[in-house]
């Protein structure tokens, strides 16, 4: 019921495609190996959700149902967990998912300007929305834990440190 990360309808892919199960073949083996690390199946929940996101780009209701089934949990339980953690995408996101830290330490070093520059240069217009070309989604995040390198941004799995508004076009050029 909170504001979704990306408004449905702005998603360029993934939202309406039929769900293909993740935990078969290789990923199933990977999960089985993970399960050996913990005394309970439930403990593999966060890793399993990460796998769904890695394979499908986001964690859909179908993904939640599949994880619930393989870990012998209920979908409602899994959903409660998914919605607790901000890094699981509950909606499809752009090809490049950009997270900008704007918490105070970065905030006082110009993070707001970085956000504005990113929105302008990606064409995403608004936070949480995906650019019309489906490439970029920009969101503000709370402390990325790299405060000495203000402003850090994360583009998918990649960390880019010490970004300033001026450097934004240069940073984005690598992902064009």
């Amino acid at each position: 019921m909170s504001t979704p990360l990306a408004a449905p309808g702005h998603a360029s892919h993934g939202a309406h495609e039929p769900y293909v199960k993740v935990f078969t073949g290789g990923p199933r083996k990977e999960l089985d190996e993970l399960l050996t690390r913990y005394p309970t199946k439930m403990a593999a929940l966060l890793p399993a959700l990460w796998m769904v996101q890695r394979e499908r780009g986001w964690v859909s209701e179908d993904g939640i149902a599949e994880v619930a089934e393989v870990l012998e949990l209920t979908p409602a339980y899994v959903k409660g967990v998914v919605t607790f953690y901000t890094m699981y995408h509950q909606h499809p996101v752009g090809k490049y998912f950009i997270q900008v830290c704007t918490t105070s330490p970065c905030g006082i070093c110009g993070a707001e300007d970085v956000v504005k520059a990113l929105l302008k240069h990606t064409g995403a217009v608004e936070l949480g929305q995906t650019s019309p070309d489906g490439k970029f989604t920009v969101i503000e995040v709370e402390c990325l834990g790299a405060c000495g390198f203000a402003t850090p941004i994360m583009i998918n799995e990649e960390f880019v440190e010490s970004v300033t508004a001026d450097k934004v076009p240069e940073v984005l050029a690598r992902f064009a």
């Binding site: 949990l73 209920t74 409602a76 339980y77 959903k79 409660g80 919605t83 607790f84």
Partner: peptide, 9 residues
């Protein structure tokens, strides 16, 4: 029968 949860935070 875990059909309810706390969602979001």
């Amino acid at each position: 029968d875990t059909v309810l949860n706390v969602s979001e935070r």
